[in-house]
Design a protein around this nucleic acid. Sequence first.
DNA 1: ATTGATTAGTCAGATTCTTGAGTATCATGG
DNA 2: CCATGATACTCAAGAATCTGACTAATCAAT
Lengths: 189, 189
Amino acid sequence: MALRHAVLAALLDGELSGYELTKAFDIGVANFWHALPQQLYAELARLEKEGLIAGREVVQDSRPNKRLFHVTEDGVGELERFAAAVGKPSFIRDDLLVAVQAADVVDAGELIARLGERAAFADAKIELFERLLARMRGDRGEEEFLGRGRRVGPYLTCLRGLAFEEGNRDWCRRAAEVLRRRARVAEER
Amino acid sequence: MALRHAVLAALLDGELSGYELTKAFDIGVANFWHALPQQLYAELARLEKEGLIAGREVVQDSRPNKRLFHVTEDGVGELERFAAAVGKPSFIRDDLLVAVQAADVVDAGELIARLGERAAFADAKIELFERLLARMRGDRGEEEFLGRGRRVGPYLTCLRGLAFEEGNRDWCRRAAEVLRRRARVAEER
DNA sequence: ATTGATTAGTCAGATTCTTGAGTATCATGG
DNA sequence: CCATGATACTCAAGAATCTGACTAATCAAT
């Protein structure tokens, strides 16, 4: 049941609409959790019913109206309990890794192509995370921001997201290089 | 539907029983996918019914009998198709990251404790992965093994697992250090 | 003038994953 | 002699997640 806590944690940044939340949890951004809009709207409804968040209607004239949510005191309490409980370690679950595990029987060309695509995707996320980090720390240096900044939680999770994608990129490049080298050697014979 | 392909990929290593599979997919080992025994036995049954794997009964006298499975030609074909299809990028989903996202409102001491536990867990996995890698490459150097070894798929995924856990460990240490530093500064005031 | 993108959501259904319990045998240690 | 742990699996139920479709308005571009 971490989705509810992920939503609570995201709402600490300030009031957000369901739609804004969906962008934060989008596959292209999510630096600490991922979820689809349908899940998020359902979770927002549950959280509001339980009093962990509260919403207020905002009437807009040039766009559809929206509801902005914020975490209540009870919601913060729930987060406290969550943070104090032991969580299970995260594990890897990745289609591309499955394909590479089967590298010795599948077409190397296809695999190399997938690895290239993933590396490019990782590059894009790396750039995105770097921009996010720069925006969060403003004109301060990283050490100064982490020492004295107001909200370091999102910064820290963004750092993990960045390192994760750097790991993805480096590994994809390495794996592709290994497979290319082996393909060349196989051809020579 | 990557679990089925993960099972197929795992069975490329040689004949395995359901029980042996469960150990490979265990939270403590899984370097390319994770799943519980219940899922694996169910998936094995489905795969056998569809003819992608085949099993043979092995009678043992000092232990319960078991069934060893291997991938059929159709199974390899299925893996080929899977590897050629684009997969969605993997994303992060981690309780501990959620907790750190909320770092600015939850108890820092608890969070630091969780980060320490996770770093220790990562350390254990790092050691495990390093042993696995050493065993796979035998007396050859890494470059030589990757260039000429028979089965490099599992080696490559294990490398990713290793890098992932190193990333976890480093980030946990860094985040804990930042939180400790901030706690000290807060106390001094 | 209409197509496509963005904002702001909702509904139903299927699949996947997790929780929790249970069966049965054999080996090992105290 | 009994408890624990490893081997080898199974069943049921529920929670979480994903697929796919749908409404409805505004804005920018063709």
